[in-house]
């Protein structure tokens, strides 16, 4: 379960650059919910994920993951509950470390890092099996440096790392946006597969409306730091892009304008 209760965030308060990024967000997710998030630039999508992950502190409100109030926990302590994949393929992995070392780091998320060996022979075998599922030929390159991989391979690996230790909540911040369409589709397929396998509670930001409608069991649309559209279950399955735009206009009182989103519909 995830509960976001009246979370607000203003960047650079009291300056000319003041920006109200989150304007009282309330959101409740049940275990196994897969929510897609869309919205224009500056709508607060990424800020919302960053608030959940603890990248910046909130101004007010609280965030409760699986019954634990994480609002005041630092980022590295919240990581125990969260799996994260970022927009930039460079962000999610350590380029100068081997594939297996990256996975081993992720396997110890939420644990004390001791003086035991950083990776065991047993783990190596497990990782090889896991990488086979990705079907990207990485299973035979365990000791290759991650920096040598393509963006798509890195995102797939990051996804595997984020879910290696089953997270309470998986946060995907436009994780296919930096990839070419074919690779993006492949990474999205892998995402659906992994999420379905463990029925992970997931929040996925995307700029692709068709994906947002097709994937997951719930869709929210953000505008000026608020959630303005929230569609679930059967209603979401029948949703079309035109309906979605109408819903958006009706509740936000403005036209939906985002070149990136419109171009990719």
């Amino acid at each position: 379960m995830l509960d976001i209760i009246n979370v607000q965030k203003t960047f650079n308060p009291g300056t000319v650059n003041e920006k109200k990024a989150l304007n009282g967000i309330n959101l409740h997710l049940d275990d196994g919910d897969f929510v897609t998030v869309i919205g224009g630039n500056g709508a607060g999508k990424s800020t919302m994920l960053n608030m959940i992950a603890g990248v910046y502190p909130v101004d007010c409100g609280s965030i409760i993951v699986d019954g634990v109030d994480v609002t005041k926990l630092p980022e590295h302590k919240r990581a125990k509950y969260l799996g994260r994949v970022f927009q930039d393929p460079m962000t999610g992995t350590a380029a100068d470390m081997q594939i297996e070392e990256n996975l081993a780091l992720a396997a110890r998320r939420g644990q004390r890092r001791t003086l035991r060996s950083g990776i065991t022979a047993k783990e190596r075998k497990e990782y090889q099996e896991l990488l086979k599922i990705l079907d990207l030929g990485l299973e035979n390159r365990l000791t290759a440096k991650v920096g040598l991989l393509s963006g798509g391979q890195r995102q797939a690996l990051t996804l595997l790392m984020a879910t290696l230790k089953k997270p309470k909540l998986l946060l995907l911040d436009e994780h296919t946006a930096a990839l070419d369409p074919k690779t993006a589709k492949k990474v999205l397929d892998i995402t659906e597969e992994i999420v379905a396998k463990d029925s992970l509670m997931t929040i996925m930001i995307t700029h692709n409306m068709a994906d947002a409608i097709r994937v997951g069991n719930r869709l929210i649309m953000m505008h000026e730091g608020r959630i303005v559209v929230d569609v679930k279950g059967e209603e979401k399955k029948k949703l079309t892009i035109e309906q979605l735009l109408q819903l958006f206009e009706a509740s936000s009182g403005s036209q939906f304008t985002s070149d990136k989103v419109m171009l990719s519909k």
Binding site: E75, H76, A79, L82, F86, G92, M97, A106, R113, S117
Partner: peptide
């Protein structure tokens, strides 16, 4: 030492702090 869990996490910290924190490492 740099092959232990702690040592690996120090190396990761030097390479990518965002990733390290996301993996629960106190950078």
């Amino acid at each position: 030492f740099f092959g232990t869990e702690m040592g690996c996490s120090i190396r990761a910290t030097g390479i990518n702090q965002n990733m390290s924190r996301a993996q629960g490492i106190n950078t």
